[in-house]
Amino acid sequence: MTDAAMTKPTTTEELPTAQPEAKKNEKYYLRFTLPQRYLHAVLFTSFLGLAATGLPMRFSENVPARFFARAVGGFGAILFMHKFCAIVLTLAFLYHVKDIVTRAVMNKEKGLFWGPTSMVANWKDVKDLVGHLRWFVGLGPKPQFDRYAYWEKFDYWAVFWGMIVIGFSGYAMWFAPFFARFLPGWALNAVLVIHGEEALLAILFIFSIHFVNTHLRPDSFPMDMVIFTGKETEEEFRRKRSLEFARLARQGKLEARVSDPPVYWWVNFARVVGFTAILIGLVLLVLTLIAYFGTV
């Protein structure tokens, strides 16, 4: 339905992954606000820290794990870093919850819990998932997405649920005698199992599925810069989120989202940070798989 408005990229100069200066004449739209981008940055740095220090604990008999732990100052250093990152991530989580509550209760923001811009899954997400799977195998057309696609919502809720589960079980171990006042004894054993398994799921998911879905798939390769710059080109916007583009155009809200192109140094800085994070994640992924299948 929005195809008519689409300009199919025909020449290589219009590649979505081209250098910023090549796209100076393009129109940019804001997708993520500065606080949202900061939240992602705090999230992924603390997550990398937690993964890098948590994995050696989980696989304490693994040789690279021991080597790494000893290199950074032994268990004391590992545990300190793990707890430090945990506090940072907890604060980020609490900030996010506070933000949602403020927007919902104080600002009475509409569409936060339901509708095309909400993170809450709806019937369209189910249809999109099925449609997307059908398209993968050539059984149907590619579904069109609104502001948040179903896999992005899954990422969000997986992290949300993960933070509650891993966070709670982590604090239960940290302050075990205190938690033991109202938890049964076996729960102290259970929290370690839960913490470790859920963290393993988070690590494997983020470093493989999230990386590929969001950054490494051919459509975004090698990295989707929008989470760092907050901005994307009109071409990208229309291609990836055609429904949102059409909806905003219909509602006359498109112009309000137009923004300046991202500055050159910021894009480069974000690339360095982003690629470093992806590299660390992939190294951890490989080491985790080796350690996991080496000890099971």
């Binding site: 990229p9 025909t10 979505p16 398209w135 590619k142 069109q144 459509d219």
Partner: peptide
């Protein structure tokens, strides 16, 4: 699928389907 799509549409990403 994306890779095949990309090859079909030159070196661009996923073109939209009708």
């Amino acid at each position: 699928r994306s890779k095949r799509e990309q090859e079909k549409n030159g070196s661009t990403g996923e073109a939209k389907h009708d």
